[in-house]
Design a protein around this nucleic acid. Structure first.
Length: 584
RNA sequence: GCGCCCAUAGCUCAAUUGGAUAGAGCGUCUGACUACGGAUCAGAAGGUUGGGGGUUCGAUUCCUCCUGGGCGUACCA
């Protein structure tokens, strides 16, 4: 259900509509069948373009009355116009729909602008999350692998959700659950001992580690016994073997340096970097607890929780050689997080391929009798593919994020020099644009969609892209600079008369609702899509109507509206993790 | 084999969660800078929503079958 909406005059129209519906019901001889306000609120929404401003779904009402929708809508509109001649909107039937049309552009735009004036920088915020903590587990790259565009998605989506959920009132805790433990480190250790070189590792750690990792998998195809070596190296590591631990620490340090450099470029922060290894000494008590509750069994030499009864197979906790698995560490992680943060929700921004894993882990928590299992949410996303194949570090089919960002930045640099060579910080601006394009590419489709990585698309700055939004924002800032004065406290709303102005203000007024929607669905795309729409509307308006003119009163009014759009675009870009620019 | 996901314009994606004439961008074609940023805007062309059947006032959306693809399915994460 929508909350009391930011749409113009929504509350007034809703109240009148509730009364109008009641009267209409009575007219059909059904007595006073009065739907409550909340119910009617669910019926009212913005009209699709070309059908007025607000509309009401007539189906439920008509069904309850046992009449056809067209008759209902006609009668309803008649009742509304007779009973509420002073309402700021007028109802007119359009086929089966009773549509509301705002009568007065000035009053409508004014109502929106007054809302913006009152809210200030908090515009768009709401309070559904106030007093609640949400943990967001995102990015979580595997150490000892280069940061590819595949890792980008979790990072970008998680970071954006962090900002969106903060905007609806949650206290967010961002955790980078680094993949710094597990058999993969056994592999790295084996590979380094066999083929590694100190000099190469020191000179270019990231590529050296990447080469070792891919070489391991290449060689393991011919020599499967390498896998056994890796497993026993990991077992040694888990038992605290000094030599293995030392190597592991070095791999981890090198990788972290690299990751932090990239997070810095992307402008992404975490509250905690507690990776898988963090839980190493917290595993045994968890296993004891599960054992005590009678959940564990031994099967084929491994310690498992049998979830066959729930059609979830088996959740492995300990391998035959006693080493732990990622499920074990995730379970320990959940218990640790609940104890230390007391979360309302705990989100895992992790690829869809791991759906079963999380179902299993969550089920184990549930079976252990922890009712906070209800707050555990897997927020899945699709693959990033390249040339029709899944990107796979193992096979070396990977695009380095670094390369993507530097190419995009280079291109942005060229365009700036061509179009706007005088701006102060060319390098910084080019970087913001390059990153903006890359980040936007990750939120420009719904999460669950697979993305085909194409250089052409990643390097496009035209149309529905991050730079398009940044450009629109920069234009608005440029307009403000040209205006050059403080925004007026008082403006004459009656000067608004263009349909584009009404459209633009109503669109801006939907911002808070879009944020709530994005927060409910854990879907940054909702914001991205909304901003594109808003920017398109602004650009169309801007092309068609002069904002700054000799008419100072009209200029003041229009500037005020433009300032609202500027704010929403800038604020929305930040929610996505993209830097709004003032010049570009 | 079993389970989950996907299929919409030439391409990449939307569609207020079952509602009005299925909409955007890219690409193609035609236009707009002696006015606030042309990384822009206006317009045109482009569709049997993979296929069949069903549910109902109404289906891109829900059910079923088929085709085509992806992922998962015990010691990787």
């Amino acid at each position: 259900m929508r909350q009391s909406s930011e749409l113009p005059f929504y509350d007034q129209i809703l109240t009148a509509t509730v009364a109008g519906v009641t009267i209409t019901y009575s007219q059909f001889g059904k007595g006073n069948i009065a739907p409550d306000t909340a119910t009617v609120a669910g019926w009212i929404s913005r009209s699709p373009s070309g059908h007025g401003d607000l509309t009401m779904r007539p189906f439920d009402a008509a069904r309850q009355l046992g009449i056809d929708v067209k008759t209902f809508s006609g009668t309803f509109c008649q009742v509304m116009s007779q009973q509420y001649p002073n309402l700021p909107a007028e109802y007119q039937p359009d086929g089966i729909y009773p549509n509301a049309y705002y009568k007065d552009v000035g009053a409508t735009v004014g109502d929106v602008l007054a809302g913006y004036e009152a809210a200030g920088p908090a515009y768009g915020s709401s309070d559904s999350g106030v007093g609640k903590t949400v943990i967001i587990d995102y990015s979580s790259p595997n150490i000892a692998k280069p940061f590819g565009v595949g890792h980008l998605r979790s990072t970008v989506i998680g970071n954006s959700l962090y900002r969106i959920l903060t905007k609806v009132g949650y206290k967010c805790v961002g955790i980078n659950h680094l993949g710094d433990w597990g058999t993969q480190f056994g592999k790295m250790i084996v590979a380094f001992k066999k083929w590694g070189s100190e000099d190469v590792l020191r000179a270019d750690p990231i590529h050296a580690l990447f080469d070792l990792y891919t070489r391991f998998h290449r060689e393991a195809k011919e020599h499967p016994e390498l896998e056994d070596d890796a497993r026993s190296e990991f077992r040694l590591l888990e038992q605290g073997d000094p030599e293995a631990t030392k190597l592991w620490q070095r791999f981890k340090d090198y990788s972290l340096d690299e990751f932090n450099r990239i997070y810095d470029i992307l402008g992404i922060n975490f509250d905690h970097h507690t990776g898988e290894s963090f839980y190493n000494d917290k595993i045994q008590p968890v296993l004891d607890e599960l054992d005590q509750k009678g959940l564990t069994t031994i099967s084929r030499e491994a310690l498992i929780v049998d979830l066959e009864a729930h059609k979830l197979g088996a959740c492995l906790l300990r391998k035959g050689d006693d080493a732990t698995l990622y499920a074990t560490r995730d379970i320990a992680g959940i218990l640790y997080r609940h104890e230390n943060f007391g979360f309302e929700k705990c989100l895992y921004v992790v690829g869809a391929a791991q759906a079963l894993h999380f179902q299993q882990v969550f089920k184990v928590i549930e079976l252990a009798g922890h009712d906070f299992h209800k707050g555990l949410v897997h927020v899945p996303f699709g693959w990033v593919r390249f040339e029709d194949r899944a990107m796979s570090t193992r096979e070396g089919n990977i695009i380095f994020l670094d390369d993507v960002i530097s190419k995009a930045t280079e291109l942005a640099h060229d365009i700036i020099l061509e179009k706007n060579p005088d701006i102060e910080d060319v390098d910084g601006t080019a970087l913001a644009i390059g990153v903006g394009a890359v980040v936007f590419s990750q939120v420009s489709v719904r999460r669950t969609k697979d993305i085909d990585f194409k250089w052409e698309a990643a390097l496009s700055f035209d149309g529905e892209t991050g730079p398009y939004l940044q450009y629109t924002h920069a234009r608005l800032c440029s307009l403000m600079r040209k205006y050059g004065k403080e925004l007026p406290a008082q403006i004459n709303y009656a000067l608004f008369g263009e349909p584009e102005e009404m459209d633009l203000s109503i669109e801006s007024a939907s911002y808070a609702e879009k944020i709530r929607h994005a927060a409910e669905e854990y879907e940054p795309f909702v914001i991205a899509s909304y901003l594109i729409n808003l920017a398109q509307k602004f650009n169309a308006y801007y092309q068609k109507h002069r904002v700054i003119s000799d008419d100072t009163a009209l200029t003041d009014a229009r500037i005020k509206l433009c300032d609202l759009v500027r704010f929403v675009l800038g604020d929305g870009l930040r929610l996505l993790g993209i830097t709004p620019l003032e010049r570009m």
